[in-house]
Design a protein around this nucleic acid. Structure first.
Lengths: 338, 338
DNA sequence: TTGTATGCGTTATCAC
DNA sequence: GTGATAACGCATACAA
């Protein structure tokens, strides 16, 4: 028994050739832009193709060329608008170049290699991920697949693995200086989950910046990487002690939660507390938050990733590009405390 | 000259067979779960495969089986958290079943057929889209592709095209009743873009519900389908006349904008104006908005779509399923106006 | 310009 | 349990 075919098999070039009374290669040529076909032949083929509803399959092309024109993208949850924006920009950029987006959603950073195994089976030309590659051991497993991989905001580079990063540490320093300039003497750092290297760098930069101004180290709050996490952490802090005058959050989602927690306790932002975040998600610009933040410029990150992948010399990995985060100053840090 | 191959061709089963000194079919069997291979043979093959970094390609399997195990999903912009959530749930559901997500992002609903042409070339097993199929003419073009298509919130069904809908009209009525029960005598409807059939139904239901209570028809505000659209439309209304006591918005994003516009004018929600939205995006639950809304239950919509596609009898289209929207009552409609 | 033949990497069938 | 072989749909080198 032959392998089970789908109930409605797609029309093949042979079907079209039969109907048009020509060879199968003629059909192929009629659909190939630069091929040598007489206009008459092309017309005959296209007519038969239209009658049957024929679409050339790219699958055999993948076998012949060894390139699928599909790029795998691995994301960890689109409930954070920043990741949704990254995916959005990336898919748009890929389509402009005639590439497809094979998307995988993974629950944890740990499942990255499992996802990559599957993507490798589909022979994706490259993989882009917002997830960090945790260990050097995981990296060598990925290197073994010999598929170009670009990570956003991961420190690590390796054969076949490149990195696009935001200048997290400098941004953290800048946040500290901004708050200090506004008169903040006592600041807090709302840290994300411990496994994010990028968030750690932002926190370190923030502490550096405070120290450079002769201020005390920040109160460090650990929280879940979400609106609720920011809300809960800020609420918990205020049970114990008076809130600091300045708050820097490892992302905007947490910052929005923190702001709402402060306001729920009757405090004003920026009247009583200045707040800054990171990512510049759309909600940061909403009038209810008007949040000062750092724009990671997702569009440029996507462009940089494709640039790395386009060039055979850099596609084999080991590259690192830094896209500077731009400070977006808004109302949440405009209150002047003196 | 043979066709240009990529600089680093993937390892094939023949390479593994050569290294292990076995036949190529033995390699295939070693990687097929239920095949008859001796443990010794399997071990030998797996060792050689690991040494070379071999991953079986699914591309030839697609050619033989006629099924790619890829589902195309066409979305129109992830800046709306609702669409991001739909995509998120869908990708998760697909992965649970071992299916891949081939994502396409299209600028306008008009480009749906262009996107489908490309997806057809990749021989996706089905297509799911949150975009509405505009005309019956467009539908017949899609039907010709003979690929199962599931549309969210489109009215139209056709051969190969099924629909998963929210009970928009009933929800609109319910919104009207809720506001009327709270003492609203004069209400407004913040309509989305004209091309959304779902939004139109919500508005019609809202008008129906107001009429059933003997109230005047709603003030209709046309706006862009976004936060800024809601903000601008609400702001413009207040330039002309006093705001209505109740507002129903065709989606949450616009509702958030409208709330911020009201507050920017010194009005309170829900103190002065009651507001309800649609979609139950995460931001609706944020404490700053606390927005009453209708949950479209994206997870169930995704499940229903897969159920339609799983059954060969329903995969060929013409089906319609309704997932009831659940009213989520929050603080934005809690003010009692008497 | 057009037709014929070959190969891409895998699975299924058949003979051993 | 194992190896040889056909087939999937298309693009290409070559022959006509």
């Amino acid at each position: 028994m032959p392998p089970a075919r789908p109930p409605h098999p797609p029309v093949s070039s042979i079907d079209v050739a039969r109907l048009a009374g020509v060879s199968q290669s003629a059909v192929s040529r009629a659909f190939s832009p630069g091929a040598s076909v007489s206009p008459k032949m092309r017309a005959k083929v296209l007519e038969a193709a239209a009658a049957l509803g024929y679409r050339p399959s790219v699958i055999p092309r993948i076998m012949l060329s060894g390139r699928s024109r599909m790029i795998g993208i691995v994301v960890g949850g689109l409930d954070n608008p920043f990741y949704a924006a990254v995916l959005d920009h990336f898919a748009t950029a890929l389509q402009t170049r005639g590439l497809q987006t094979l998307m995988m959603r993974v629950p944890h950073a740990l499942s990255l290699d499992g996802a990559l195994d599957q993507l490798a089976g589909y022979r994706v030309d490259a993989v882009v991920t917002a997830l960090a590659v945790g260990s050097r051991q995981a990296a060598s497993a990925l290197s073994a697949l010999r598929i170009p991989i670009v990570c956003f905001n991961s420190r690590l580079t390796a054969p076949w693995i490149s990195t696009i990063r935001s200048n997290n540490r400098a941004a953290g320093r800048l946040a500290a200086e901004l708050l200090a300039d506004r008169g903040v003497r006592r600041a807090a750092w709302l840290a994300g989950p411990a496994d994010s290297a990028a968030a750690r760098e932002r926190g370190r930069g923030f502490a550096d910046g405070l120290a450079a101004r002769g201020l005390l180290p920040p109160i460090v709050l650990a929280a879940d990487d979400s609106y609720d996490g920011g809300y809960a952490a800020m609420g918990a802090l205020m049970h114990r002690e008076p809130p600091p005058a300045g708050l820097f959050c490892s992302n905007d989602l947490m910052a929005c939660g923190a702001i709402d927690a402060l306001r729920a306790r009757g405090l004003s932002v920026p009247g009583d507390v200045l707040v800054a975040g990171y990512d510049n998600i759309p909600q940061a610009a909403w009038h209810g938050y008007d949040l000062t933040t750092f724009d990671q410029q997702a569009e440029q990150m996507a462009a940089a990733a494709l640039e790395l992948l386009d060039d055979p010399a850099t596609a084999t990995g080991g590259q690192s590009r830094t896209i500077p985060a731009r400070l977006i100053e808004r109302g949440s840090t405009s209150g002047l405390i003196t």
